[in-house]
Amino acid sequence: MKPAATALALILTAAPALAQELNALVWCDHTDPALIEPFEKKWGVKVNLKEYEGTGAALSIIEQSRPGDWDVLVIDGIDVPRAVAAGILAPLPVDRLPYDTLFPEVVMAETHVIDGQTWAITEKFGYNTVSFDKSKVSAADLADMTRLWSGDFAGRLAVYDYYLPVMGLVAVGLGLKTADLTAADLPAIEEALLKLKDSAASVGEVVASQTAIATGAVDILVGGGEWVTAGLVSENPNLDWMIPEQGAVRWSQSIGVFAASGRKDLAVEFVRHVLSPEGQAALATSSCYWAMPANRAAGEVLTADQKAALRWDEQAEYLKRAQLYPAPDAALDAAMQDVWTRFLAR
């Protein structure tokens, strides 16, 4: 055990009442016991997890909490600057994290390193694109993304209820760059979205989206990807995903430590656990959703079948064809949420 870890273990043993619990605000994939229990056993602590979906929801929870309530935050990679600007995150000890084995394309230094400090580290990534049941529809049918809102699949598709990836995906389908989106692009995106809604049998969050396609309620999930199908493919081999000709959106989630945490050392150990090969393998194959681990060292732990389901060997090509989530400023974000509200109310 390294000196810092030894010191932390001594602190925990000497003052158990001070560090019996760690509070983490996370996406649902972190609630899998396969990820959490080894950490709890190793450090003799209880990890309390609060699930959320969407950075807005996380910021709302943080705003309604007291300083020090939270220790660890999982957040969309593109939203790290927002969290830093709000004073939510603490700098990470870069020398104690496995940067040398991260996939270089997902390090995202442009959003994670601010004023010379690193505030979060990428832990998992994947794609918001199109999942489908290949017994009902073929990849060739979906090659042109604009067909999704043409009415060709009316009543046969569901839409993932998260405005950033789906609006980003529609933007890609319209030939726009997600990084360059402005308010002027929103009318065209809204027009396509409203047509998409007219064809949608349902609009739902993570679990509802998975259920919709897994139960055969719909044939296509817009905004889906490996995070929907990889974990279900052993039960239903017909579930698949693809990237249309226009491309797709890459999502990336990161993990950091709260600036107001009173247990920063333990929180850093949790980050190290999640980024370890074993932690990454457990996170990649979480019961809530599967996706690629950011640390390629997880490849030593994942089985061949798991890597096949994640399309481990095809990542270089996928990374080339996908654009990052849109990263709107506050004004554009509010305008995008207004569009999404109109989409939901349609």
Partner: peptide, 17 residues
């Protein structure tokens, strides 16, 4: 299934997101 938006859902959208 997200086909209609009710007022209570809009309250939650404003609170949660």
């Amino acid at each position: 299934g997200g086909r209609d938006l009710a007022a209570a859902q809009l309250v939650m959208l404003n609170l949660g997101r």
